[in-house]
């Protein structure tokens, strides 16, 4: 019983990180109709920056803030210099372009930090006891931060002018531009926010995994599966999908260890076979179904 409870809590923290990281992919596709594989760079750089700041100052909080800022800055640079040039190109082209950017980023990481994985100690080793179950406080912090991020992004989308213009822009770009709204600026803003969240996700995940140049790769596919399962462009969908996948990884892995790795892929195959638009996707906006 205790094992399962722990597994569920661990799963929730995995979900939290997945949600933060997948947001950039979901928004990239939902808003700009591009598959931005390079989003995982913000995640890896976030983790590395946290590592650097923690080894210099010893403060994890500073590290996490630094990661968020770096994520946002990288997102801004990539969106304004490169992605804007490829929005109108076909899907395959943008995928190869963003994948190349991802590879370049991995190369940069290797130049700066080398190949060896860097271990990072957990910022707090406090344990919460709850009905005979021991839960690390850090896991709960992750869950809390993810919830805050979800609320913030929902508020942004539903309560602000930017969010409203954005949602209108997704449906009909020409109309919104006709109203004199600078849609590019709105896209950039949203993209930067999503990238910052990905950076934060990297920071939070850094103590849980080894910080290595290829950590983005390990996350890339899981993040994509989250987005596909959730339905593209739907933030609620991304959240629900992250919750499901977190449990698949954690509880599934407790049942049979290889499921922790293979489980998400099985989920993806089932999704694509049964409901290619994902849980909350709109028909016609699934990956590659808009031709």
């Amino acid at each position: 019983m205790e094992t399962w409870f722990t597994a569920v809590i661990y799963g929730l923290s995995t979900s939290g990180i997945l949600f933060l990281v997948s947001l950039a992919l979901s928004i990239g596709y939902g808003l700009m109709r591009i598959v931005n594989m390079e989003a995982m760079l913000y995640y890896s750089f976030g983790a590395y920056v946290t590592y650097s700041i923690v080894s210099m100052t010893g403060s994890f909080i500073l590290g996490a803030i630094g990661a968020t800022v770096i994520g946002g800055i990288l997102g801004f640079v990539v969106e304004t210099t490169l992605l804007r040039k490829v929005y109108h190109r076909n899907m395959m082209f943008t995928m190869v372009v963003t994948f190349s950017v991802f590879m370049i980023g991995i190369g940069v990481i290797q130049f700066i930090y080398g190949l060896d994985p860097k271990p990072l100690a957990s910022p707090t080793s406090a344990i919460i006891r709850f009905m005979n179950v021991q839960i690390p406080l850090y896991r709960l912090i992750i869950i809390g931060l993810a919830v805050v991020a979800y609320i913030l992004i929902q508020l942004l989308m539903n309560k602000t002018i930017t969010g409203k213009a954005l949602r209108a822009g997704i449906e009909n770009r020409e109309n919104v531009e006709g109203l004199g709204v600078n849609i590019n600026r709105i896209f950039t803003t949203t993209f930067v926010i999503a990238s910052a969240f990905a950076g934060l996700g990297g920071a939070l995940n850094a103590p849980l995994v080894m910080v290595g140049p290829y950590m983005g790769f390990d996350m890339l596919l899981t993040a994509f599966i989250t987005v596909i399962l959730g339905g593209l462009g739907s933030i609620k969908g991304t959240m629900v999908a992250a919750l499901i996948l977190g449990q698949v990884v954690s509880v599934g892995g407790t049942i049979w260890a290889p499921l922790a790795f293979v489980g998400p892929f099985i989920v993806m195959f089932i999704t694509i076979l049964i409901r290619p638009t994902g849980l909350y996707g709109v028909k016609g906006t699934a990956f590659g179904f808009n031709d």
Partner: peptide, 21 residues
């Protein structure tokens, strides 16, 4: 049979997953 029914980016991603698997 399943891959050839997919379009565009799904094909790309499923193949990437196959690679990881």
């Amino acid at each position: 049979p399943s891959l050839m029914r997919l379009k565009g980016s799904y094909f790309t991603l499923i193949n990437a997953s196959l690679c990881a698997i």
